[in-house]
Design a protein around this nucleic acid. Structure first.
Lengths: 146, 146
DNA sequence: CCGGGTTGGTTGGAGTATCGAACCGACGCG
DNA sequence: CGCGTCGGTTCGATACTCCAACCAACCCGG
């Protein structure tokens, strides 16, 4: 909640999420780590971010609990970045963004996701009633008075 | 594809998507429009964005085909913003971000989504095999040589 | 017909963030 | 010893963002 208080506009978890991962490089950094690129230089090249920005973002993501900085060698001390539980939980967001980009931005998907050994076609269902979620079936209820 | 060519880092639809909606206000603007706030002033207050930034982003989102600018009165000419098909297709992204924020950023969800008349609990399944998607079952294949 | 309010912006200047390039320390390798 | 690698940090120029003010076009009350 505390994050929301200092935010302009509507109280909403979307705004709260964007406050954490809504900048230009964070989600790409998470993508790289999820692709198995744990080292600073790998993430640097994978994202294309400037070094200083990447260093700052990684620090912030560690502070936010999205990434974990783990020592993988002692002399000299070197660290790799790994997804925390919160970080792994971002993968559905990345898959949704990727599906959207595949459909509406790029001509041809540069990367295809595979589920077991067939192509992954994500569909969202409501866990309660097992029905596929269509936009028109979704409404919202505000919980806080503001 | 053309979007990707001029981008630093890995060729990937996530980066392409972020190029369109990855800035500070775009997704919040889409959220507001999806909440039924179609007028400039409504979006302005809902997002908390500065007027000039919002004007610029709305223009860009219309150009990108995410929003549509529709005249709703003639004298003086006034326009409202509406979701295109591409814009509606962003709602799963927003729901994923909201779910993540609910779980990892805020203490208590400020807004709850309802599906029909029960709480919406989104779950992603693979449309091909109907199985819930777990991160460890997903791999990726690069399509382009680069 | 005059003044004020609403809507949907645009403009200007100050402050802030981002960028690329250079630099740095600690090591390993030959 | 000199060079390369890795993971950053520092610097100065540039770009972007913010806020406040302004604006045009219209409506309404008096």
């Amino acid at each position: 909640m505390s994050v929301l208080e200092n935010l302009p506009g509507r109280h909403c978890s979307i705004a709260a999420s964007l406050e954490v991962v809504g900048d230009r490089w964070s989600l790409l950094a998470v993508r790289e780590v999820s692709f198995g690129n744990h080292r600073f230089t790998e993430i640097l090249e994978g994202t294309g971010a400037p070094r200083d920005r990447l260093a700052a973002r990684l620090k912030a993501l560690v502070a936010a609990g999205v990434l974990e900085r783990r020592r993988y060698q002692d002399a000299p001390p070197r660290f790799g970045y790994h997804l925390t539980a919160a970080g792994k939980d971002l993968l559905p967001v990345l898959r949704a963004l990727m599906a959207w980009g595949d459909r509406w931005v790029v001509d041809e998907p540069p990367v295809t996701l595979l589920h077991h050994d067939h192509e992954l076609v994500s569909e969202t269902v409501c866990a309660t009633c097992q029905e596929p979620v269509r936009n028109r079936d979704v409404t919202r209820r505000a919980n806080s008075p503001t």
